[in-house]
Design a protein around this nucleic acid. Structure first.
Lengths: 211, 211
DNA sequence: TAGATTGTTAATCGATTAACAATC
DNA sequence: TAGATTGTTAATCGATTAACAATC
């Protein structure tokens, strides 16, 4: 199997989202061409991506919606609830804590951590605990996923704490590019950088951006 | 000039962030090699990127920090305050409205819009207005940038409203992939997709993701 | 000068796309 | 069967990297 890269997996998520919408429209089968339109890619790309994961269709009848959905869901970890912890219950952190989109798609933030004692609440649905309790919590509950939403100067240190407790994947919102290591996958989301990108292309008057 | 693409501009933002940190450490000049380390790219990539934008160094003395910073800042629109509107003052929207990172980097959310009347406040620092007032506001204040933070089913419609009023660039947080057009640049940030990506690579045990 | 670094070209690498045989 | 679509290979495209002449 060819090693799929980041953008390939991102496309899988988009295919899955498209399929969910098509299913809601009572589609029973789809062609690579339909998915290509729905996900803004080429039909060849769709078939290539599927073939990488051994997802097969029917030479004349396209792909079964239900089959496709279950296979993509499996690949993307939708076959089980994904438990995740959040560090930094500030502005952005609080919003993520209550983001309904996560629970809807099988991602559950089970606990928050913060250094600020005034933010600690132990008895709510999602408790907010002191940072010192993170290490034990991760080990006890066998957590593999974390979200970092602390200020930039604290991000690297929080990452090290997470890794030392066994976290394997991190979504980072701190405006500093955390480096991925062999034992931990990292996606950096930098809100300012996203806007700077848009601002550049508006100024350049040049929307023909390659993906 | 070779047309720079999205990832190239993203790197420029990272170089700029790195330079700001190096400047704080009293660096007066930097070599492509320093920046490569700081931004996790190759030195050749740094020099190539700079040459695309006509940013020149000195054959033996590297790049002047101040010069570099001002040139990158110019390219990324840091030479003026960027005014932006936000639509959808819900969970995520509210957090963005008060995100200190924007103001720090010259991005100012000047107004929010929402359909829910209970959210309207006209007399605060950042007023929240009814959606019907958006069109006029954009025209009157000559706004070019917008953030979409509404539910998925409303996103496309909000985008159309924005475009018809002259918005040229949009950062979209709704979990639906909005399609870019010749007259409007779009960056989609899908929080669930980001996590699905991480989940896949943890399961695959395969962190050698190409960028 | 000798040594080090840029700027740029050419080579490499990898991802996307076109095309078409297989086949339902 | 005829027509349409997949699955896959080969061609294309574009981005990254290596290498080195220019030069400070």
């Amino acid at each position: 199997m060819n090693m799929p890269n980041r953008t390939c997996i991102m496309r899988l998520s988009r295919y899955r989202n498209a399929i969910i919408r098509l299913k809601a429209l009572n589609f029973v089968r789809v062609f690579s061409d339909n998915l290509a339109d729905a996900a803004s890619v080429t039909a060849a790309q769709v078939r290539k991506d599927f073939s990488i994961f051994g997802i097969a269709g029917h030479r004349r009848g396209g792909y079964q919606v239900d089959d496709l959905l279950s296979k993509l869901s499996k690949i993307l970890g939708k076959d089980q609830i994904q438990e995740i912890i959040l560090v930094g219950v500030g502005n952005i952190g609080k919003a993520l804590l209550h983001y309904p989109g996560f629970e809807k798609s099988g991602i559950r933030i089970v606990v928050g951590f913060d250094i600020d004692p005034t933010k600690h609440i132990a008895d709510t649905n999602i408790p907010i605990l002191p940072l010192e309790k993170m290490h034990d919590y991760i080990l006890t509950n066998n957590i593999k996923l974390g979200i970092i939403a602390v200020p930039d100067y604290a991000a690297q240190q929080v990452l090290e704490m997470m890794k030392s407790a066994g976290i394997k994947g991190v979504l980072n919102f701190a405006p500093i590019c955390l480096r991925e290591s062999a034992d931990c996958v990292i996606n950096n989301v930098n809100l300012v950088t996203e806007l700077e990108n848009i601002i550049y292309f508006i100024k350049a008057g040049d929307n023909a951006r390659s993906k």
